[in-house]
Amino acid sequence: MAEAIFSRLISKTGIDPQNIIVSDINSERMAYLKNKHGIRIASSNEEAVSEPGAIVLAVKPQNMKDLLTEISAKVGKRLVISIAAGIKTKKIEERLTQARVVRVMPNTAAIVGQAITAISRGSRASDEDVEATREIFSSVGEVMDVDEKLQNSVTAVSGSGPAYFFYLVELLAEAGKSTGLDDEQSLKLATQTAIGAGELLRTGREAKELREMVTSKGGTTEAAIKAFQENKLSDIVRTAVQQASTRAKEISEG
Rank of each mutant, 00 (worst) to 15 (best):
R29T: 06
I225R: 02
Q242M: 13
L181A: 11
K90C: 01
G122C: 04
A244R: 01
D24I: 05
K91D: 14
G141K: 00
K88N: 11
Q192F: 15
Q98N: 13
A248F: 00
D24T: 10
A58V: 04
T239C: 10
F6E: 04
S160F: 01
M144I: 15
G113M: 05
A248Y: 01
G219M: 05
L67F: 07
N26K: 02
S7Q: 08
I21Q: 11
R78P: 01
P106R: 03
N26E: 07
I136M: 05
G86E: 02
A4L: 07
E250P: 04
V157I: 14
I136Y: 03
V101K: 05
R29L: 08
I5V: 14
V143Y: 02
A48W: 02
G180S: 09
F228W: 12
N231V: 12
D147P: 06
R78D: 04
I55Q: 02
A4Y: 04
V56W: 01
I251L: 09
E94S: 13
K65L: 14
G76V: 06
G53N: 05
E250D: 13
S23P: 01
V104A: 07
S186G: 09
I25N: 11
S245M: 14
A227R: 13
S234P: 02
I10H: 03
A227Q: 14
I251P: 00
L33V: 10
G14E: 06
N35F: 06
T220A: 15
A248T: 03
L67G: 03
N45S: 10
E128W: 03
V49N: 00
T246F: 11
T203S: 13
S178T: 15
S7K: 08
T193H: 04
A73L: 14
S216F: 06
R124I: 08
E250A: 10
F166N: 06
L79H: 00
D235T: 12
E47Y: 06
A240F: 08
Q98T: 09
Y164R: 03
S153N: 11
L9R: 03
E70M: 08
A84E: 00
Y164K: 05
R8L: 12
E170D: 15
E148G: 09
I195P: 03
L172Y: 04
A58F: 01
Q242K: 15
V102W: 04
P106S: 08
T108R: 07
T69N: 15
I111H: 12
E230Q: 14
T108W: 03
E206Q: 15
G122L: 03
L200N: 02
R40M: 12
Q229W: 03
L200D: 04
Y32F: 12
D16A: 12
T13Q: 05
E131H: 12
D147K: 14
R247P: 00
L181F: 13
L67D: 02
L67S: 09
E212Q: 12
E199S: 11
I195L: 15
K226D: 13
I225K: 02
I71Y: 01
A224V: 07
P17K: 06
V130A: 11
N231R: 14
E222A: 10
M144A: 15
T221I: 08
G86A: 02
N152K: 06
S7R: 06
D66C: 13
I119E: 01
K217R: 15
A85R: 01
A110Q: 03
L210K: 06
I25A: 11
A109F: 09
